[in-house]
Design a protein around this nucleic acid. Structure first.
Length: 423
RNA sequence: GGAGAGGUGCUCGAGUGGUUGAAGAGGUACGCUUGGAAAGCGUAUGUACUCCAAAAGGGUACCGGGGGUUCGAAUCCCUUCCUCUCCGCCA
């Protein structure tokens, strides 16, 4: 969330920038400023009363020691009254703080100045593109048909075991997935990211830390018996490594990568968007995460985007990078670049990666801070990106590389698959 | 799941009702010392909110979380979470 200080000191600017995200913040911000003033006044009263009580208690102690029982009792009587008022003001303070916090978590992150105006996905800007569009014959098959033809993915079997959106990968496709995971992890390692294996279920505190809670509660699988959530992305456990952590400036940047299965309920999704591998409840992804000094986070964002670009290039897929418009960005992001690859038989672009700078928005909730050279405490900036999500990559690979002889595996992957063709 | 032990500052660790935000040690930083280092000596070393125009300096809260007893709680009581050990179960 945004810091209270920033909101109160720059309220006009905040409202203007929120408007770009289709968020009308004027009323909430006004309420926040009012609540904050109320909080300060109430806290001042509480602190004063507590200070009185503390000093009275000390006096009582001294009087008791010197045997002045009566004088002590007199003071005790005074504290009774004082405690009554402390209780009342204290309750009011708690309520005000709660209100204030409820308001704060409603405010999305502010878009960076370089974010283009726009309301919907159609307004996103193509930043750059590359790769070669495949020239497929008219009877080219979409990946769900290819999956059947070569017995690669069994969607019905997944339905039997779990439900829609939980496919069973078989044979060379299972192997292809494993190859992709290793390929992505090896590349990330080479780029200086430390590999970690995080838990796939997290507690509520972690969900709040990265902003999935309370925002997207309905999108996560919730194990109610133990009150744990299945992770929708490795971003959640990996970023939460740094929750409640005080870092040194010399520690920055922190670069982590992790493979994980990801679980998403995708409540409300339907239609052709969910066909085949396009939208699943469980999928595999390699994530990259960086914790960076606020002055360097945008430089880092560019590096992360360039890094992901090398991956799509090695996979020989036609790609493009979108700079998301203000209206299409996620709640927590300040600037996001999406990667799409062209899935030639479906004749559509599929989002395979999203790389974002959250600035201090997550860090504020996470309480992830660092001490700078002057020993001052400041919030870090957090960034993450998919590098990358597997299913749509698999879809594009299958569709784009189909030949009469079978499906061709891109050169960079062959050392990982151990085969050159799926036939 | 059963039985027990425990959760204190960067770390270890003391502390069972009254200047305890917290002894002591270690670590770290700075200074002195040294040809240089080590040792030694000295000083410092939490976070959040808040008062003050700012600094200096105050105030409040925080000894896992929440609640209670008391004039006063790290210390007593209740509750909850977590960790560890042993047994059981499983991999």
């Amino acid at each position: 969330m945004l810091t209270l200080k920033y909101i109160t000191e720059n309220s006009e600017d905040v409202i203007a920038r929120l408007a770009r995200k289709n968020f009308d913040g004027a009323a909430v911000i006004a309420q926040i400023i009012k609540s904050d003033a109320m909080r300060k006044a109430t806290q001042l009263k509480t602190d004063d009363a507590l200070a009185r009580l503390n000093s009275l208690s000390k006096e009582v102690g001294l009087l008791m020691k010197s045997g002045q029982q009566e004088a002590a009792n007199k003071l005790k009587a005074e504290t009774t009254q004082l405690k009554e008022t402390i209780k009342i003001i204290g309750e009011r303070l708690t309520a005000v703080e709660q209100d204030l916090n409820d308001l704060l978590v409603q405010i999305p992150n502010l878009p960076h100045a370089s974010v283009p105006d726009g309301k919907h996905a159609e307004d996103n800007l193509v930043e750059r593109e590359g790769g070669v569009m495949p020239n497929l014959p008219a009877d080219a098959l979409p990946h769900w048909d290819l999956a059947k033809k070569y017995d690669l993915i069994d969607f019905e079997l997944g339905v039997k075991i779990s439900g829609a959106g939980f496919p069973v990968y078989k044979g060379k496709c299972a192997r292809l997935q494993r190859a992709l995971i290793n390929f992505f992890l090896d590349n990330a390692n080479e780029a200086g990211y430390l590999e970690v294996q995080p838990p796939y279920v997290v507690n509520a505190a972690s969900g709040y830390g990265t902003g999935q809670l309370p925002d997207k509660e309905g999108q996560m699988y919730h194990c109610t018996v133990d009150d744990l959530y299945l992770i929708p992305t490795a971003e959640v456990p990996v970023t939460n490594i740094y929750r409640d952590v005080m870092l040194n400036e010399a520690d920055l940047p922190i670069k982590n990568t992790a493979y994980s299965a990801c679980f998403r309920r995708e409540a409300g999704s339907y239609g052709k968007d969910v066909r085949g591998l396009n939208r699943l409840h469980q999928f595999d992804k390699v994530e990259i995460v960086q914790i960076q000094h606020p002055d360097k986070s945008y430089e880092t964002l560019d590096q992360m985007v360039s890094y992901v670009q090398t991956l799509v290039e090695k996979l020989e897929l036609p790609w493009r990078i979108l700079r998301l418009c203000a209206g299409d960005m996620s709640f927590t992001s300040a600037l996001t670049f999406d990667f799409e690859v062209y899935s030639a038989a479906q004749q559509r672009w599929l989002e395979v990666s999203s790389v974002s700078n959250f600035e201090s928005y997550q860090a504020n909730r996470l309480k992830c801070r660092f001490k700078d050279k002057d020993k001052k405490t400041a919030l870090v900036h957090t960034l993450n990106g998919s590098a990358m999500a597997l299913p749509r990559i698999v879809a594009a690979l299958l569709e784009n590389n189909q030949t009469p002889e079978g499906i061709r595996i891109p050169k960079a992957l062959i050392p990982y698959t151990g085969f050159e063709f799926i036939s």
